[in-house]
């Protein structure tokens, strides 16, 4: 049996999680809620994170962005490069999808209006 220990990042409480892996079976300990259990399992199988960064618009303004779903942790740097290399239309506004499917099922969306 393998065991993994880490901190849950799903909310400010930050529970100390332990995942015990018995073959394919995962048992989560230390979580206070369901969210934590889901996070723990995923963290063992394929860790994912939400990326937040900024992009530039065609007219040189800045717009804050995020991935609307967590994406592979190991690909974070690659995605940040990809996001930064693109220019956003100047009329973009908060909530707009700026890059579709940067990873299966995850889009990059605007989290602010251009400034």
């Amino acid at each position: 049996m393998e065991s993994y220990k880490f901190i849950c990042i799903e909310c400010p409480i930050g529970c100390n999680l332990t995942v015990e892996k018995n073959g394919e079976e995962l048992t989560v300990l230390g979580n206070t809620c369901k969210r934590g259990e889901m996070y723990a399992k995923l963290e063992v199988i394929s860790p994912k994170r939400v990326i937040t960064t900024i992009m530039r618009t065609e007219d040189g303004k800045i717009i804050a962005v995020k991935t609307d779903k967590p994406v592979s942790k190991t690909k974070m740097f690659e995605y940040v490069e990809q996001i930064k290399s693109k220019r956003v239309k100047s009329g973009a506004k908060i909530g707009d999808v700026l890059i579709e499917n940067i990873e299966e099922g995850a889009n990059v969306i605007a989290t602010s209006n251009p400034y």
Binding site: P12, T52, I54, A64, I94, T111, S112
Partner: peptide, 21 residues
Amino acid sequence: NQCIHNGFGLTRFKESLTGPE
């Protein structure tokens, strides 16, 4: 406005928003 990371609003909106959102 400068806190573009997520994690805001979990208590209030039950979702993880960025500062500007």
